[in-house]
Amino acid sequence: MSQFIDGDSTVLLTGATSGIGAVSARKLASRGATVAIVGRDADRGNRLAEDLSESTTGSVAFHRADLATQDAVRELAAEITRAYDHLDVLAHNAGLSTPDRTITDDGVELTFAVNHLAPYLLTHDFMDLLRESDRARVVITASGVHSRGELDFEDLRLERDYSAIDAYARSKLANVAFTLELADRLETVDDAIVANCFHPGFIPSTGLFRGASLPTRLFVRLASLAPGIGTTVEAGADRLVELATGTEYAERSGQYVSDDGPTDPAPVASEPEFRERLWRVSADIVGIEPDWP
């Protein structure tokens, strides 16, 4: 078992109050780590933090944030920077799928804002804390559905057409492309930080689709009843924890990990021109200089 995570380690985990996030938080806290869990529901988050602090050897604190707006993301980053002096693992697990096209206060399509721009901005704002670790890791929960994603840079607000599954797929494509670009940039500046992403498997019991359209929810329900389809929350959490702690990923960066380990993502996610454009467009939207890390 890896000793990367121990009593001196600090982990930040978004989307941590339910599903694979909550299970991952328990597994990481059980190794003695200090775990900062992030979610929108204060009651659920505080209950989970109290339970894990009492039932594991780790120290767990809840930080409430709605990652839909850039102000909230920056406020979270400032709060975490005040509370902790380093980060060993930054795990971006928060995600949503919404049935109706929604535009945030920043003028961004909601799914893209939460699933991609929030991880992008948080990673930027946490670079100093990550560099305070001897070897830090960035882990992003992507999805196999990224392979059907298409990203039209001329219609990021999805004004021409909106489909919940297509909006989700393009946000997951952005996750993978961002991970690969981040890994390459970190290697260029010789940082002791690795960045990897993973497909957690199709988990019918997740709350991800609770706000989806009725046909989508019916499909998920039917799929959950079919033998051999889907996986469990526990298995998805194991994959996140493996990327966060496993010795195989101590220096292995820029990986998309699926059922059989590291595998090739959709070709477009690996295209340098696509990755570079996504990086620069994302920087412009959130108002930062693109020449980082």
Rank of each mutant, 00 (worst) to 15 (best):
S163D: 15
I165Y: 05
D155T: 01
V89G: 08
R31D: 15
E273G: 14
A113L: 03
P272N: 13
F178W: 08
A118F: 01
G261I: 00
T188G: 05
Y249M: 07
T17M: 13
S270R: 14
D105G: 07
D155S: 04
D134C: 09
R185L: 07
D8C: 09
R157Q: 09
P272I: 05
L180A: 04
A65N: 06
R252E: 15
A183I: 15
A237W: 00
G144E: 14
M1Q: 11
D85Y: 06
A83G: 07
L158N: 11
G236W: 01
S147C: 10
L218C: 09
S147V: 14
G19F: 08
G21V: 00
T245N: 14
E150S: 06
E289F: 08
D166L: 03
L48M: 05
G21T: 00
N93Y: 09
P262H: 12
V189G: 15
D238K: 15
S97R: 09
E181M: 14
G107T: 03
A142R: 02
D6M: 09
D100I: 06
E75Q: 10
V176P: 01
E75V: 12
D8S: 10
T179Q: 14
R277F: 04
A61N: 14
P215V: 03
G39M: 02
S30P: 11
V286I: 10
V194M: 07
E181C: 08
T245V: 13
I5T: 10
L90D: 00
T17F: 04
A65F: 01
R170Y: 02
T102M: 05
Y84A: 05
G7N: 15
Y249V: 04
S59M: 08
G261W: 00
F62V: 09
R160K: 14
M1N: 12
G236H: 06
A192S: 15
L90V: 01
S253V: 15
I140M: 12
V233L: 09
S224N: 14
I5C: 11
I229N: 03
L48V: 10
R160W: 06
D51Q: 14
G19M: 03
D191C: 13
R157I: 06
R44E: 04
V114I: 08
H63C: 05
M1R: 15
D184C: 12
A250P: 08
F178G: 07
L117Q: 09
T56W: 07
V60T: 03
T10C: 12
G230T: 02
A113Y: 05
L90S: 00
V38P: 02
H146Q: 15
A235P: 01
F274I: 02
S282G: 06
G19W: 04
T232R: 09
D106W: 07
E248Q: 15
E251C: 13
A266Y: 09
T247D: 13
V233N: 06
P262G: 06
